[in-house]
Amino acid sequence: MDPGSMDEMPDGVARSASDRGTAGTTPSVKAEVDPMTVGPAAEDTAAVSTASEGIGVPPAMPIATLPPIEPTHRGVRLSPRTGEPRRTGVIVVSQCLLYAAAAAAGAGYAHYWWVAMHVSRFFDSAWVVGWLQPRPGGAASVLLVIGLAACVAAMLSAPFVVAYQAWTGLRATRVFGWTAIGVSLLGILFNPIACLSIPLTATGVGILWQRAAGRYFAQWQRLRTPPEPAPAPEPGDVFYGRLPRFQ
């Protein structure tokens, strides 16, 4: 079309012809999201859709991946939460029994004190008090009260120590357990409630001799034992002077 004739044409006709010519020669442009006109919600949607597509062409088959490797140290599997060997079920059961034994000893001592508060029932407060029958308020009764307090302190601490050492994987806990069983026999000085600590302690210690507990102690021992140093290489012949290849 002659450019001169474009000037003679009306404005509306000339603009339509110009638009048709531009549409035929200019490639289509993808519309962009204008955050000022469509709002932040549309902008976020466009960003998420673009980010989810990723870079490149996705493979036809999904890429197979292996699960993460459990953290280990010197061949021992560690718990990702604590960084220590995983506690087995026998260790947890033993802990519950030993703590229950300590609780039984404390409850028996509390019952002894509650009954001993009443002078009329003083001789019924504990079996040993009924056996010896000291005069209430006398020197013998005071010494007996102090002795019973020391006994219950041992009955409380022994299972607690064994339970803690077992939790931390000390193999000598098995030997300490026999001491805890012997200390729990002091419950016969009090009442039936304190005597419950005897079977509870014996059962909790006996579980520590299970094979699963032995493997748990072995893992802890492997972690605590420092690695042996590598053996030094055997000394060979020492050549003095200029090396043969440089002669």
Rank of each mutant, 00 (worst) to 15 (best):
P40Q: 06
G138M: 05
D34R: 12
F123N: 12
V128R: 00
C195W: 07
S52H: 02
Q165V: 03
T201L: 06
Y112R: 09
A101F: 08
P59E: 14
Q133A: 12
E84C: 06
P3K: 15
G169F: 04
W167K: 10
P235M: 14
R174L: 01
G182K: 01
A100D: 05
F160G: 08
A154V: 03
L223M: 08
T88L: 04
S16N: 10
I207S: 02
I198Q: 01
P67S: 00
A41Q: 13
Y109V: 09
G12N: 12
A153R: 02
P27T: 09
R242L: 10
L189E: 03
P227Q: 12
W131F: 12
P231V: 11
Q210R: 13
E8Y: 06
S16Q: 15
R81D: 09
D7S: 10
L144C: 03
R121F: 13
R74M: 14
C195E: 07
Q221K: 11
G204E: 03
G83F: 10
A102Q: 03
C151S: 09
S49R: 15
H73W: 13
A102E: 03
A166V: 06
M61F: 05
M6L: 15
D44K: 11
T201H: 01
R20A: 14
F217R: 04
I193D: 00
Q165D: 08
S5P: 00
L208K: 00
A149C: 10
Y109C: 11
F239E: 12
V183D: 01
P59M: 08
I91A: 06
V57R: 13
A126P: 05
E32D: 11
F239D: 07
G24S: 14
D7M: 12
S197C: 09
P192H: 05
T82N: 06
A51G: 02
P68E: 06
G147W: 10
Q165K: 13
P59V: 02
T201E: 03
A14N: 08
R87A: 01
A101G: 08
R74D: 15
A163W: 00
F217E: 01
